[in-house]
Every structure is written in C-alpha cells, then in structure tokens.
Design a protein around this nucleic acid. Sequence first.
RNA 1: UCCCGAGUAGCUCAGGUGGUAGAGCAGGUGACUGUUAAUCACCCUGUCGGGGGUUCGAGUCCCUCCUCGGGAGCCA
Length: 433
Amino acid sequence: MTIPHSRIAELPAHAGTTVRVRGWVTHLRSSGKVAFIVLRDGSGLLQAVLVKNAVAPETWERFSQLTQETSVEITGEARPDARAPGGFELGVSELTIYGPSPLDYPIQPKEHGVDFLLDNRHFWLRSPRQRAIARIRHEAEQAIRDFFYERDFTLVDTPILTAAIGERSGLFSTEYFDEGTAYLAQTGQLYGEAAAAAFGKIYCFGPTFRAEKSKTRRHLTEFWMVEPEVAFNDSDANMRLQEEFVSYIVARCLERRRPELAELERDVSKLESVKPPFPRVDYTDAVKILQGKGSTVQWGDDLGAEDEALLVEGYDRPIFVFNYPKEAKAFYMKENPADPRTVLCDDCLAPEGYGEIIGGSQREDDHDKLLQRIHEEKLPVDAYGWYLDLRKYGTFVHAGFGLGLERTVGWICGTPHIRETIAFPRMMNRLRP
RNA sequence: UCCCGAGUAGCUCAGGUGGUAGAGCAGGUGACUGUUAAUCACCCUGUCGGGGGUUCGAGUCCCUCCUCGGGAGCCA
C-alpha cells in the first residue's frame, strides 16, 4: 500500500492514519530519548515527534544529522495532541533526508538587523513574518484583478521599454538597436489613455521603474503599480472609483488573510473602518489647515511627507487631497476651469503615516492646452505626437490613477518599510539577491 | 546631492574621564522520555569598517574615506 503525501495544512483530514510530509526543518529540540522536529512545507508548521524506543536505531541516528533547513520527508501517524503547537502533530516512524543544510545557515530564530536580512533575502523569505506579508500581497493583487474584472475593465499590458515619455523624474536607460536610447517605463498611463478610447475602461498592472536617488522607507527603484483609465470619468468619478477600489482591497485582505494579519500583529480595527466615502480636502484648504497646525507650507508648494502626516492625523481611513497647483503636478493633468491656477487631480493619503498610495487626475483633453503644457515643461514634442493625436481624433473626458502596490501592502500589513512587501526589493544600493 | 545616526565574535548588542575586549544567541561535548526561540554543565569564537594622525599606550580622541540606516528633494 502506498502511503499518501499530505500538505501540513491538510493533515487534520488524515487524523489517525499514516502519511508522508515533505518540507524543511525549521527547529530541532531533543530531550535524550524524545526528539522534536518542527517542519515547514509552505502550507504551515508541523511538530513531528520522534521516540527513541519506537523507531529503528538508524532512524534515531538520522535525527542527529538534521540541521536547520535540512529538507526531509517524514512518515508518521497524524494525530491530535494538546501538547503540540497548533494541537496537531506527527508521530514519526521513518525519516528521509533529501538535502542536508550546513550549520552556517545565516538566519537564526532570533532578532536580526534589516540589512543583514536583506543580504539574505533568499532565505529571509522562509520566515513566518515574510511569508505572511507575501500572502497578503498575493491577496491584494488578486483583489485588484477581481475588482476590475467584476467591473468589466479590460486589462491592457503596457510596454516596459519606451522612448522618452512619461514623467520627469529619473529614468533608467539602455541602448536600443538603431532607435537610440530606450527607457524603462515609469508609468503605463499614456498608453492606458490610448487604450481607454478603444475599450472604455482599462487598467494596466506591472512593474514600474524610477531612477530617483530616494532613500526612504516609501521608495523602491522597481515597484508595481496598477493604473486604471476610464473614458468619460471626471475627477469626481475618479475619486469615487479610488475609494471603492481601496476599500475593496482592504476588505478582501480582512476577509481572507486574518491569520496572516494576526501573524504580523496588525491592529485590524485600523483597517475595518476603511470604507467609502473618504474625506476630501481641497488643496487650498489643506494649506490653511497645515498653516494652522504650524507648517511652513505656502500655497503653490507640493505637500511634503510631514505635511501629509499632519493632514491625515485624526482620520480613521484614507483621505483625498485634491486640485493641486499646476506647477506641482504633471503636464497631462487637466486645468481646473473654476481656478486655472490648479489642476483636476487628487492624492489619496493612507492613514497611520503611510502617505500617498494613489496619485490620480482627470487628463487634459484639449489638444492646444496640452501642447502648450508640453512646451512649458520643455518636453520633446515629437515624442508626444501619438499622445496628442488622442486629442485630435475624437477627444474625450477621461481620468485615471496609479496605485502603488508596495505602499498599499505596507500599509495593510503595518510594515515599517515597503521593502519587505516585495520578494526581491530593488533599491539604490541593492541589486542582489 | 544635502542633513542626522550607526559600523565591536557567525547574529544581536554592551564596552564612564584613553591602559591591549565581553554578554546573550548560534556552534562543539555531555546529561535529560513531551519539548514549545527547551533546560543544565563545560568548551570554542575577534584585522573593534579602511587609512592616516595625536599619545608611552586608541574600540575609546582628531582627520579622511567607505558602507548601511533614517530624513529632505522627487514620487506610487
């Protein structure tokens, strides 16, 4: 008779029977004639118990060869036991070593510094906390796709290699055959606008690159951004979509990732209040509020991280700050007809100091005004020919936004730095592992 | 690029006013039939980030460089 394999999470269904479990040793304890192996297989943790008198001598001997992270197959009886963590354990009858692991495995079950852990990111991913964050990220990504799928948005994958186009901040460049210099995309938005005229409602979701020399807990050089673009949405409809979207992602994580949030010791009451509508603060009012709180911000300035934190203070959900001064924002944003010094845009600021998770705007749909802005920003006009064409052939009111996945996941998880929210973070000084 | 802070054992850190470095964990040996980051006994562990200077003597004081962290700017 073949002994069935089981994932640790599925073991209770096999109670009272003999199964085989494969995984990695995370912890070893021994009391002379009783020994314990804590095993990880990705689905959970399992305590396996080895009793000297109950197994073959060579099996007992094999236990002493085990080290942390040895990969093994353990055969034994699955059974409930009140003394085991999680209330379930495996009574070992056979032990097979697949791959030994030398004693210098760097990550120990204790405190380490972040720099050391990032150097060992390929191993750090195996730790419970990192697995919890990765699963919440996975849930958020799935929620993002489901949200748009349910609302009949079409997913359009935009190029990563582009000619000079997009925003002004730092670009990664590379030589591109006879076409000159190619740049890694900072946004898919401009392509999204083209696609919106074809499909009405679209989104793109992929990696984005910024060569900024940013050294903060909120920045990566490579991050994932989801960018919907909706034909005939104005700025107000855009904000309504954003608050529904953010609330949907958070609700999904609360619904399906409670154990992971508990592993992270996240205060979920801070997430349960995240529901539409989100408070909205006009930029001009925000400046007055901030000045009242002692900030030195002047009308016309972009808001700094400190200002953002001050504004969000006291709110139990994200807020919108809308209609910033033109000078502080990108060339493609639509001028505000009610106050031409400003543009129709919004930033969505997460609570608890996590800052801007979304930047959105209604796009300039007037050909001549857009052209003028391109000139004012001294951008290469010929590179924007196709983009201007969108305003020439059937222009349309449209709006969209970009949500930073890592910042959003960092907020949901309550991590101190967004670098933990991506498997292999890319930062100024970190290209490996 | 600028402003703060840090760099001491494999890891996390402690080392008043200068006198040639120490603790926990990890590792080794042994004990223990129910451990939960097991416990107990004994043992091992160092280019004190690099370079220069002051001094009889520098982990400690001075200069300089490097690396890392946080923040600013920029943004998701």
